[in-house]
Amino acid sequence: MADNDTNPRRRSLLRRLWDGFWSPTGVLSVGFLLIAGFIAGILFWGGFHWSLELTNTEEFCVSCHTMETNLGEYRETVHYNNHSGVRAICSDCHVPHEWQYKIKAKIMAVKDVYHEVLGTISTEEKYEERRLEMAAAVWAKMKASDSRECRNCHAFEYMDFTIQETRAADNHQRAIDDGMTCIDCHQGIAHDLPPGYLEEYEHVVDMLAGTTPIGQGTEVSDVRAWIGGQSDAAH
């Protein structure tokens, strides 16, 4: 046993690598190691951040088949096409800027890949069946964060109510007075709304306030009726 431990030729490759990793270097100075470690750290962190930003691009988001419906709806909205040319892409609304929340969103987005592979929303019917559930999940996040991602671009403080439509100005003033948040009114700002969305949104608000148990409130029959209506309209 003792021979196995002391004879390098008899030790496994992994063991030798492990021991070598933890052995003091005899040829490199502390300064060399510090500078090399610093440079390696910058390279690693830069590469990591660069890769992370690649996953924030619109091309990356819509590269999955299941995102085609979302993309089509989004292309009909003011966030995609408008008079000024300023756009909000997927990540602007769905990925926080703050580091820890951004990482959290990226980790949670693994579920999108999982469902893409499973084909959970691979057909129009499946998509519509899940639309209310998916929307509710996003509403819950936005309501809980006080519409943080909206506010990265929009702020009440800088809104000129005098150049807004009267209805918009009135409602924005009411939102300030009542402490409302963007998603309280703008649930369908970038994607289509299914029937029963108002009831579902109220359920989300109640759930976040801790007054309604999770799992209640989704009227599947409404969704199915709406899918039927869509199919009828298509024919």
Partner: peptide, 8 residues
């Protein structure tokens, strides 16, 4: 943990 735009 905070956000520059909200006070959650």
């Amino acid at each position: 943990g905070g956000s520059h735009s909200t006070h959650v």
